Each structure stands twice: as C-alpha cells, then as structure tokens.
Computed example of a mutant assay.
Amino acid sequence: MILYFSNSFKSGLKVLFDNAPYLIESVNFVKPGKGQAFARVKLRNLLTKQLLEKTFRSTDSLMHADVVDVKYIYIYYDNNAWYFMNPENFDQLSLNTAIIENKYKWLIEQHEYLITFWNNIPIFIEINKFMNLKVVSDVSAKELNSIMSNKKCKLYKLQTGLIMQLPLFIQIGDIVKINTITEEYHSRINI
C-alpha cells in the first residue's frame, strides 16, 4: 500500500481514514514560528458524503485508498435503478438511489460519467460542475406566468426533466449551461 505523509497531501487525493475511503478536498499547510508544522485538511467520506476537518502533524500519514474511477456511459432508467455501460468491455452496471441521490437530474443518456469503486463496489458518481442541457419546453400555466410576470425569468423544462428559471431570451431548443452545484443558469451555448 502507498503511504502519504501530511506534507504530500493535496486536493483530490483518495485516502483511508478510520477504515473508510475519503477524498481530500482542501489542504492548508501551517508552519508556525515555534513548534512543528501541521496541515489542516478537509476530508469528504466517499461512503456517507460527510465532510470532516482534521489537523495532521508533519509526521502523520494516511494510506492510499484502493479506490478506482471508471468511465461509464449512462444508458437508461427503469423505475428501480439507473443503468450504465462500460464502453471498453460493454459490462452493464446498475446504481440505486443511495448512490445516485439527487444527481439523477443531471444524467443524460449516452453521456459519460466517472463512477468510483471501492473494493469493487460502486460508491460514488461524479457529476461535472457544469452541464450543457437542451431546453425542451416551457412551463406555461396561467398561474405561473402571473406569479412570474414581474420577473425577468420564465420556467423551462430541460432534457433531463429538470424545471428551472431561465432568462426570457431563452428559446425552446437552446442549449444552456447550468451549474450543477448551485443549480443556477450560467449561460446560453451558441452552436
């Protein structure tokens, strides 16, 4: 097993901590005038998604987590699970709600996603920070339009089924760039 000392910690590193896989999200190295240097580290548990802040001395170390990231193509949903296919060997994989959580609104058929495995079990799916989605229809109910008449936005339905407020200049068929973290409109994509 690979051992990482705290002075080699960096964002994106996957390590074992308390017998669970963690992702290092940020590292802040501190070298005080007196005393030993240390690192303040934000760790995200890949199983529970819980964020943890820990301080490590320069002599502390963590083992590399046997975590593998594999690209899979999303193919369909059948009311029980989301199905993906490995483009290299065509193996299919189904993910349940515990892994997908609320990320289903960013899944586009035939689009590649990075799935993280720990001990050959899928534990996490990574969604890009920005997704380009097609506007498929507007939500045009009289009540909604009267509520939103004083705003510069309108409700639209995107290709994944997500309904969100977009600027009035957006047309059906446009491709829009959406921030998946804040779930906000970022820009229109010109093709």
Rank of each mutant, 00 (worst) to 15 (best):
S61H: 09
V67L: 05
Y104V: 02
N119T: 10
K31C: 12
F38Q: 02
A39L: 01
D66I: 14
D69H: 11
K103M: 02
K49N: 11
K34D: 14
K54Y: 10
W118P: 03
H186V: 15
V139M: 09
T59M: 09
E112G: 03
I181A: 11
D66W: 10
D138E: 14
D66G: 15
D78F: 15
I73F: 10
L13G: 09
Y185K: 08
L47I: 15
A39C: 08
G161Q: 04
Q165Y: 06
I73A: 08
T180E: 04
T97A: 13
I108V: 14
T182C: 06
S146G: 03
D174A: 11
Y22L: 04
V70W: 06
F84E: 04
F124G: 00
G33K: 15
Q165L: 12
G173K: 02
T48Q: 08
I115H: 01
L95S: 09
N102F: 07
F130Y: 14
L155F: 15
L16K: 14
F130P: 00
L43G: 00
K42V: 15
W82K: 05
I100H: 03
K103R: 08
F9R: 01
F38G: 01
G33Q: 14
L93W: 06
H186L: 08
T160W: 02
D91A: 07
K49R: 15
I121C: 06
Y22E: 02
S137R: 12
E183K: 08
N45V: 09
N102W: 05
I147W: 11
S149H: 05
I121R: 07
D91M: 07
I178F: 07
I123K: 00
N120Q: 14
K129P: 04
I2C: 03
Y76L: 13
I172C: 07
L43M: 06
W106R: 01
I147L: 15
N120P: 07
L47W: 13
Y4C: 02
V135T: 09
L168D: 11
Y113M: 00
T180P: 04
R57C: 09
A37Q: 12
L114S: 13
F124M: 04
L23T: 14
P21S: 13
Q36Y: 05
K154P: 00
T97N: 08
L95C: 13
K134W: 04
Y76K: 12
K42E: 11
I99G: 01
N132C: 12
T116Q: 06
T55L: 05
Y83P: 00
L114N: 10
T48C: 06
L95E: 08
Y156P: 00
L43I: 05
Q165W: 01
G33W: 10
W118L: 01
Y22D: 05
P21Y: 13
K151E: 07
Q110H: 12
D78Q: 15
T48M: 04
Y156G: 01
A65V: 10
Q92N: 03
N89I: 06
Y72V: 03
E184D: 05
I108D: 01
V139T: 11
S61M: 03
Y83M: 10
M148H: 15
E53C: 07
M63W: 09
E109L: 06
Y113G: 00
S149L: 03
K14D: 11
F9S: 02
N150W: 01
I73Q: 14
E25D: 13
Y185I: 11
G161F: 07
